[in-house]
C-alpha cells in the first residue's frame, strides 16, 4: 500500500483527541478543582479531593471492590480454564458452535439476565422452591457477597473462556507429543508445557474479567440490593446523586490508576515468563 494511505487515519486521530483524550483530561482537571468554589471557571487547584479519599470509609470501599473482583476473577479462572480446555478438545466444527453458544447470551440484555438471577436466588425464588420440594432448608443467598460474585462470574465468564480457548487452540499438538516423548506424564505435560504456553491467554482473560469486576456498579446494585457499595457505586453516586463531580473525578482517577497498575503488573508477569532464563522448576 502507498505511504499516503496513512492519511486515512487522520480523521480518527482528530476524533479520538476530542472524544477520548479531552474527556480524560477533563476528569484529571476536575479531580484537582476545589469543590467549594462552585464556579468551575474561576477554579482553584487543590489535592483535597484525593486527600478526602484517604478516609476509612472510602478506603474500605476500594478494598472491598478489589476483594470481590479478585474472588470473581479467581472463580472465573478456575471454572473457565477447564471449560476452555474441554471445548478445545472437541471437533473443530463443534468448537465454533460451542463458542457461539457461549457468546449468544451476551446479546440478550445483561441487566435482564442478571435480574433473572433474583428470580432464581430470591427468598421465594426458584432455587428455594426446588429445595422446599425436596424438604430441604431454604437458603438465603440474595443480597450477599456470594450473590454479587455469582453475578459477576455469570456475566464475565465468557471474557475468561474466549482468550484461554484461543491460547489452547494455538498450542502446537507436536509440542504435547514432544513432551510425552521426553517422558512427561499427563500432569507434567500440563504443568510444564500447556500451562506456560497458555499463560498469555490466562493473563488476557484475567485482565478482561478483573477490569469490569472491579468497576461495575450494576451487579452490586441488583444482586447486592444496593446495600454493598463498591467503588463503581461510589463514583455513580458522586455524579448522579450528590453532584460532587470533583470528588467523583478524583475517584475515577484513582480507579484508573489501579487498573493501569494491575495491567502493567500482569503484563510484566507475562513477559517474565516469556523471556526464559533458567526457570526454577
Amino acid at each position: 500500500m502507498h505511504e499516503s494511505t496513512k492519511r486515512l487515519s487522520y480523521p480518527y486521530i482528530v476524533w479520538i483527541s476530542i472524544i477520548i483524550i479531552i474527556p480524560m483530561l477533563l476528569i484529571f482537571l476536575y479531580s484537582l478543582i476545589d469543590p467549594s468554589d462552585g464556579n468551575p471557571m474561576a477554579f482553584r487547584l487543590t489535592i483535597d479531593n484525593y486527600v478526602k479519599f484517604f478516609s476509612p470509609i472510602y478506603i474500605s470501599t476500594l478494598a472491598r471492590s478489589l476483594w470481590i473482583a479478585v474472588w470473581s476473577t479467581l472463580a472465573c479462572l478456575l471454572l473457565g480454564y477447564p471449560l476452555a480446555w474441554v471445548i478445545a478438545q472437541c471437533h473443530p466444527k463443534k468448537q465454533s458452535s460451542l463458542l457461539l453458544l457461549f457468546i449468544m447470551p451476551m446479546w440478550i440484555n445483561m441487566l435482564l439476565r442478571t435480574y433473572a438471577w433474583i428470580s432464581i436466588l430470591g427468598k421465594n425464588g426458584i432455587l428455594n422452591n426446588i429445595l422446599e420440594f425436596f424438604h430441604l432448608a431454604p437458603v438465603d443467598i440474595m443480597y450477599t457477597d456470594f450473590a454479587i460474585i455469582l453475578g459477576m462470574v455469570y456475566n464475565f465468564l465468557p471474557f475468561m473462556v474466549l482468550p484461554i480457548h484461543t491460547a489452547i487452540a494455538k498450542v502446537d499438538k507436536n509440542l504435547i507429543d514432544a513432551a510425552r516423548d521426553l517422558g512427561a506424564n499427563n500432569r507434567q505435560v500440563f504443568s510444564k508445557v500447556v500451562f506456560p504456553l497458555t499463560l498469555p491467554g490466562i493473563i488476557t482473560g484475567v485482565i478482561m474479567v478483573f477490569l469490569p469486576a472491579v468497576s461495575t456498579f450494576v451487579i452490586p446494585q441488583l444482586l447486592g440490593g444496593g446495600q454493598f457499595m463498591m467503588i463503581g457505586n461510589l463514583i455513580e453516586k458522586q455524579f448522579l446523586l450528590t453532584g460532587n463531580w470533583y470528588f467523583g473525578s478524583a475517584l475515577s482517577m484513582i480507579l484508573m490508576i489501579f487498573i493501569l497498575l494491575s495491567i502493567w503488573l500482569m503484563k510484566r508477569f507475562d513477559s517474565d515468563g516469556q523471556a526464559g532464563g533458567a526457570l526454577p522448576w
Binding site: A178, G277, L279
Partner: peptide, 16 residues
C-alpha cells in the same frame, strides 16, 4: 523423537 518442525518449546530457552 525428532519432530518434523522440531516442536521445540517456545517458552523455554535452549538449555531448558
Amino acid at each position: 523423537t525428532v519432530f518434523q518442525k522440531y516442536a521445540l518449546f517456545p517458552h523455554l530457552n535452549v538449555f531448558d
